[in-house]
Amino acid sequence: MSIVIYAETENGKFKKTAFELASYGRAIADQSGTPLLAVTINQDDTEELARYGVDKVIKVNDVAFEEFTAQSYAEVVSTIAKENNANIIVLSSSANAKYIAPLVAVSLSAGYASNVVALPDSLAPLTLKRSCFTNKAFNTTSLVSGVNIIGLSNNSYGIKEHPSSAMETTNSSVSLSTSSLKVENIDKVVGKVTIADADVVVSGGRGLKGPENWYLIEDLAETLGAATACSKPVSDMGWRPHSEHVGQTGKPVASNLYIAIGVSGAIQHLAGINSSKVKVVVNIDPEAPFFKAADYGIVGDAFEVVPQLIEKLRAFKSS
C-alpha cells in the first residue's frame, strides 16, 4: 500500500499546493506506516519535495503531456496509483486537480471526497471532515472503498517541513489512450497572481461606484502582492471580468487575508470567502452585514480610507 500525491507544477516550479499536499500526505503516511509517493509530470528538478517528507518521486516526462488535458493527466495519476498499489491518492483543489479527480475516481473505482479540510478522523474506514453548503457547514464523510481519493482544500492544512533522509527518484512512462479533444489555445494573463494561488485577495463591491475607480483596488492589491476579486453584481454589470467574481456562485477564496472594500457582505458573497483565514472590511455603513463576518473593520468612505491605506502600507513594506 502507498499514499500517492500529484505534485502540480507550473513553468518548471512546484505550486505551493504541492508542498501542502506533501505535508498532508506525510502525516497520513506516518499514521498508516506506508510510503509517501509523489507523481510529477514534465518536471526535471524535484529535489524540493524532499523537504516536505516525500519518500519517492515518480517522474513522468514525455512531450505527450506538454499540454494539460484532463484525460491524459488523469491517466497518469491512475496508472501510477495502480502500479504502486496506492490506497490513498491526495489531490489539490486547483482547477486542474478538481478536473481530473472524478476521472481518476472512475478509473480506479475509488471513493472520492472533495473539499477536505483536515487530517482524517480515522483511517479505517477513511473518515474525513469536508466543507459543504459553500462553507456554511461541514460534514464528516466515511469512504468505503479500498482505494480512495482525498481532494484537499487549498490552504486548509498548511505547509510543514519534514526533511526526508533519502528521497528516491524514478522515471516512469504512461501510454495514453486516444482522444478527439484538442487544446486549441490558452489565453492566460502572465505575471498576475490568481485568486486560487494568492495569499492575499483584495475585493471590491458596488460601493466603489464604477469601474473607473478600480485603480484603488488594483493599487492596494499591488502593494500587497494580492489578487483582485469582486462581488457578483460588479461582474454582472461588466465593471470587472467574470473570472474575478467570488462567492457562492463564483470562485471560492481560501487566502490568508481577504480585504473587502465597499462589499455589503451578502450571505452568498460570504459563503464563498469564508474559508479565508483573516477578513478585513472597509464599508461606509456600520450596519453592513460584512462587519459580522470580519475580523477587522473600518467604518469609513473607501475613497478616503483606501488611498491612506495604500500609502501607509507602502511605507510599512519599505521600512
Partner: peptide
C-alpha cells in the same frame, strides 16, 4: 462509495475589531 455520518456548523466567530478610519 461514501456516506455522510454527520454535519456540523462552523464555530461561532468572535466580534469584529473596529478600527478608527483615522488610525490606519
Amino acid at each position: 462509495k461514501s456516506s455522510i455520518l454527520k454535519f456540523e456548523k462552523p464555530a461561532p466567530k468572535g466580534a469584529v475589531k473596529l478600527i478608527d478610519a483615522d488610525n490606519i
